[in-house]
Structure formats: structure tokens, C-alpha cells
């Protein structure tokens, strides 16, 4: 599964995208973020306030309790500020 990070989330984590293989039991976006936070302190720091994070699954807006079944691309980012 490919995970993408944007804006300050990308800067705090230090990469824009990476391939990850989460363990069994990581079923939803919330599970994925919880697992990412256990990997390294920079992830724990970046995801400290998950209320400030939005998610897209295969380039469609999604929610933290959405399942990851069949998903190839997960994007995590702050609320959008275009326009």
C-alpha cells in the first residue's frame, strides 16, 4: 500500500510518499494511523492531533473509520487551503 503525505504532514514526517505493509489487524484508516505512530517518533509527533488530519482513499475523500480493503493509495493531509 502506498501512503502519501502533504503540506506540514509531509514536512514533519520527512517524506512525501512511501510503500508500507501494515500488519494484520490494520483494517481502517484510524488503525493505519495508529500503526504509523508506533513506527518512529516523527510519525507520533506528526499525527499527535488526528483531528487536524484529513484522508483520501484512492484519490477520493474518505473518513478515518473507512476500511482499507482493496485500497492501493492512502493520502493523509491537513485540511485543504486552496482557492
Amino acid at each position: 500500500m502506498r501512503v502519501l503525505y502533504f503540506a506540514w504532514l509531509r514536512e514533519r514526517i520527512g517524506v512525501g510518499s512511501e510503500e508500507v505493509s501494515p500488519p494484520d489487524g490494520v483494517a481502517t484508516v484510524a488503525d493505519l494511523v495508529a500503526w504509523l505512530k508506533t513506527r518512529e517518533p516523527r510519525y507520533a509527533a506528526a499525527f499527535e492531533d488526528t483531528a487536524a488530519i484529513r484522508v483520501a482513499l484512492d484519490q477520493e475523500q474518505a473518513e478515518f473509520d473507512d476500511p482499507l480493503t482493496g485500497v492501493r493509495e492512502v493520502a493523509l493531509f491537513p485540511p485543504v487551503t486552496g482557492g
Binding site: F6, A7, A56, Q61, A75, F77, P78, V80, T81, G82, G83
Partner: peptide, 8 residues
């Protein structure tokens, strides 16, 4: 656009 398009 301001609330749904992924720009930062």
C-alpha cells in the same frame, strides 16, 4: 473548491 480540492 476551497473545501474539497487538495491544495495547500
Amino acid at each position: 473548491l476551497k473545501t474539497r480540492a487538495p491544495f495547500w
